[in-house]
Computed example of a mutant assay.
Amino acid sequence: MAGIFEIAEAGEKAYFFKLTAPDGTVVAVSPLFNTIKGAAAGITAVRENAATGLIVDKSRTRKKPPIGTAAARSATPLTGARLAPS
């Protein structure tokens, strides 16, 4: 079973969507939209781009080599992932 997108209200004139996994885990929550159409367009954008999206690791857990070194110029990508330039 695929995940479920759910549009909900946040106040009187704001909407958001959330993506829930089949086991009920909330995977993603959108920013607020002014209209339901805007929230639906956001869902469409996620559907179109999620499978082709790049992974950018901006965590602080990896030690970064000093700027200007050969290691800094040839970053090692995560296994199985395509990284976008940051």
Rank of each mutant, 00 (worst) to 15 (best):
G11A: 07
A39G: 12
A70K: 08
V26M: 13
V29I: 15
K64P: 00
G68L: 07
N34T: 14
I67E: 04
T35N: 04
A51W: 11
D57L: 00
F33E: 01
D23F: 12
V27W: 02
L19W: 05
S74A: 06
A39W: 09
S59F: 03
L54P: 01
G42P: 07
T44S: 14
P22G: 04
L32W: 09
F16H: 15
G38I: 08
A21T: 05
A39L: 09
N34M: 06
P31A: 14
G11W: 10
R62D: 00
R82F: 13
P22R: 05
P31R: 15
I55D: 00
A84M: 12
S86C: 06
E6L: 12
G24T: 05
T20W: 02
Y15M: 03
E48I: 15
A8N: 09
G53A: 15
T25C: 05
K63S: 01
A39C: 09
P77Y: 04
T61K: 06
A10F: 11
A14H: 06
A75S: 10
F17R: 08
A75P: 08
A41R: 06
K37V: 07
L83E: 13
E12Q: 07
K64L: 07
D57P: 01
S30L: 11
A10N: 13
G68S: 09
T69D: 00
E9A: 10
K18D: 05
A8F: 10
S59I: 02
T52Y: 11
G42T: 11
F33M: 07
A70R: 04
V27C: 10
G68C: 06
K63P: 01
